[in-house]
Nucleic acid binder design. Structure first.
Lengths: 353, 353
DNA sequence: ACACTGGATGTAATCCATTACATCGGTGCT
DNA sequence: AGCACCGATGTAATGGATTACATCCAGTGT
């Protein structure tokens, strides 16, 4: 009896050091092979109930936790999807992410989030990081990205879907809504109320935020279409209340006497509203204001904000479904244009009340 | 010349199938061993510049991306930290997470987020999931958790820090602030303004949310201390505007004629304020209202909300630093009690104006 | 009684990067 | 010359789970 080699070596790891138990420890304790342990976990039907029981007990006793890195390495699949959004501080994206998380988890995947702070270079970094870490697919916001990111995605063939945008050509997967059309609807509405002097508070277009650009373009084209006001009455700022106030100040300082203001975001609108209040400008009597996004808060400020409801959660759900489909080889390049709709509350009226 | 075995086999993978390149492919192309490739990436000083150059070119040419699962498996470290928060829809946690992300990334780690929707059972699931996936440490919210989660953490010895709470005993790592003391300060302030009839709009305590419980306890003890009003004037609801409105209705329906209301969250306060406006109750003349958290929106509603500023971002930064320290074996059980401070705006005044 | 089938289980290769250890050529010292 | 040493590189073991393939055994059909 030279030595019971097999039973001695694993024992070292499972008892002496307290480092995590492995399949081998479990196998030894349950008197089976590692293959059987693995099968007990992943295909219980292939294992006799009696043996299954023994293995389960061993797992229990050792507090065995499978090592997902090893599994991912072997199976070449991590079941995680990278989700890259501009920020979570804007409630819209927080909701979007929540919907993504919910749907992915229902499909047996899970999200790994990262934020870019609206910086396309950061976005490119995050994309490569997520890819290296084994993301099986990506959910991105917007369709414009840095050339580095674009070529990386093309070169690796990593599946991804874009959101909050539309793709007129329908090549890549895109789940979103039409920013231009939505703003068009707003301008139409204001025009039908009789407004002829309409300005816009827009998000920053300089960093190639295509949602902001789309909304601004929608404004320009709509204003042209109606032959009203000036397409260059556009004031930009980040999506914060403070910046909305400043943008309204800038507008007034330039002596523009608009009767209505279209905003690229509810935050800008709320800021504008604040500034009006501070200056004694009555909304909607002296000035109509329309927001965008329909954040929870929009319904609860005074007066309740007229705005555009966007299908954030629905988008998140569909994007999650789409990326999982792509990962599983279903070739359908998912493409959806979801409807938006105006929610008319109390910050809009005809000019003069 | 039997065969150049070594150069033939890897070629199969790098050219025929288009699956990702590995160190071996790079090594072959650069005419070096895999060890040298690895060193070029992780310890360039050990490699002659000339060789380094060759390897870099090969990496470039093949679009080689290291497989992090393999690295994690071998090194037994993933450099990721699990972050478990109740929800992102509440802006406070979104900010917290942003600070965590920023600090972790500065330290060469990265966060993997998951949300619980305030459910401790879900929290337990997320904790085990993150652990299995290789989280090296966890950042959690609150100190109360399900027994399953608690015993799991104890059994595995996985490092973690709790936030948004304090640990009187200082055993575990806890980075937070004193909810009770903060509410105490609020009640003191109201009492010094002359209020004697004070009620509370609280978060739900039933699901063992220890922030809500701490704040409610603070209210009860402060009210007792001052010998004023009734400690059971507490109305609960989730942290939403809608629920704040309902809670205020419930309070009024019960015929309580409080002169001041302390809220467990700004959202509850905003809801209360809305309901006051709807019913013609003037704030602060007829009723003072104090929020909690000092969300961005608090300063921008009408009237601007008096509230308690909490150090969310600071907490996030410290928690990230602390968990990384713990992961690196520094034994200091981190413990910090950060200051909160009241921000007095325009929803508070003496009773009657 | 024999060959065969199929279910249950074991054996060992595999995924990919890292790294301990071995190797080799060259330098400097005695 | 001989020895120690060093820097650069290669060889091969390693981490943990999965899985293709081999093996064994009981049951079935003829």
């Amino acid at each position: 009896m030279p030595a019971k080699d097999k039973s001695i070596r694993p024992a070292r790891r499972s008892s002496v050091t307290s480092s995590a138990a492995t399949v081998r420890d479990v196998a030894n304790l349950a008197q089976v092979s590692t293959a059987t342990v693995s099968r007990t976990l992943n295909a219980p039907d292939l294992v006799r109930p009696e043996v299954r029981e023994r293995v389960s007990n061993a797992i229990q006793k050792l507090g065995y936790i499978p090592n997902d890195s090893a599994r991912a390495l072997r199976q070449n699949q991590t079941r995680f999807i990278g989700v890259v959004v501009p920020t979570l501080s804007y409630a819209l994206y927080a909701d979007f992410y929540a919907a993504v998380e919910e749907q992915l988890s229902a499909l047996g995947y899970f999200p790994v989030l990262s934020t870019t702070d609206y910086d396309l270079d950061v976005e490119a970094e995050q994309i490569t990081r997520l890819s290296r870490q084994g993301a099986q697919g990506l959910i991105l916001v917007g369709r414009v990205r840095s050339s580095r990111a674009a070529s990386y995605l093309a070169a690796t063939g990593l599946p991804f879907v874009s959101t909050y945008a539309t793709d007129p050509l329908g090549r890549d997967g895109t789940i979103g809504f039409d920013n231009e059309a939505a703003i068009n609807e707003v301008v139409n509405h204001l025009a039908s109320l009789g407004h002829r002097r309409i300005a816009m508070l827009s998000g920053l277009r300089s960093n190639l935020n295509d949602r902001a650009i789309g909304r601004a373009n929608g404004f320009i084209s709509a204003v042209r279409k109606h032959g009203i006001a000036s397409p260059d009455w556009i004031f930009e700022g980040p999506y914060t209340i403070e910046s909305g106030r400043r943008a309204l100040c800038a507008l007034l300082d330039r002596g523009i006497d608009a009767t209505a203001i279209v905003c690229g975001s509810d935050m800008l609108a709320i800021g504008g509203l604040q500034e009006c209040k501070a200056r004694g400008i009555r909304v909607p009597r002296d000035l109509s204001i329309v927001g965008f996004d329909d954040l929870e808060i929009a319904a609860h400020i005074d007066p309740p904000l007229t705005t555009v409801a966007v299908p954030s959660r629905e988008q998140g759900r569909l994007a999650a479904q789409a990326i999982v489909d792509l990962c599983n080889g279903r070739q359908c390049p998912p493409n959806a244009v979801l409807p938006t709709h105006m929610v008319v509350r109390e910050t809009t009226a005809g000019p003069g009340g």
